[in-house]
C-alpha cells in the first residue's frame, strides 16, 4: 500500500476575484482533498491565489499537436472575423 503511486493532479489557481483559474503546475496526492491542501502549500505561499481547482491529470483529454493544421488552419483564412478587415470612412468616430 505504501508503494501505491498517488495520482497526478493538475492545479489551477484563481489569483483574484474576477479572473479565471489558470493552470500553474501539477502534483501528486492520495486524493482530491490532499491535492488541494498540497496545492495551497506549494502554489499559494505568496498570496498567489484565492481559489484552487485540482483535476486528476488522467481526466484531461487534450488535442493532438499533429492535428494542429486541420484544427486551427481554417480560422487563419477568415480574416473578416477581425475588425481590422473593414474599411471605415475618414471622419467616422466611435466605431
Amino acid at each position: 500500500m505504501a508503494n501505491k503511486e498517488w495520482p497526478l493532479y493538475e492545479v489551477f489557481i484563481r489569483s483574484k476575484q474576477g479572473l479565471s483559474h489558470k493552470h500553474v503546475g501539477s502534483l501528486r496526492a492520495a486524493d482530491e482533498q490532499m491535492a488541494i491542501d498540497n496545492a495551497r502549500d506549494v502554489y499559494t505561499r505568496r498570496s498567489e491565489g484565492i481559489s484552487i481547482w485540482v483535476v486528476e491529470s488522467n481526466s484531461v483529454f487534450a488535442s493532438d499537436p499533429n492535428d494542429a493544421d486541420s484544427l486551427y488552419e481554417p480560422s487563419n483564412s477568415k480574416v473578416y472575423r477581425h475588425p481590422t478587415f473593414y474599411d471605415v470612412p475618414d471622419g467616422i468616430e466611435h466605431m
Binding site: 500500500m1 505504501a2 501505491k4 492520495a30 486524493d31 482533498q33 490532499m34
Partner: peptide, 11 residues
C-alpha cells in the same frame, strides 16, 4: 512510509 500509508487509508 507510514505517513503515506495513513494518507492512503484516509483517502
Amino acid at each position: 512510509a507510514w505517513v503515506r500509508e495513513a494518507a492512503n487509508a484516509f483517502a
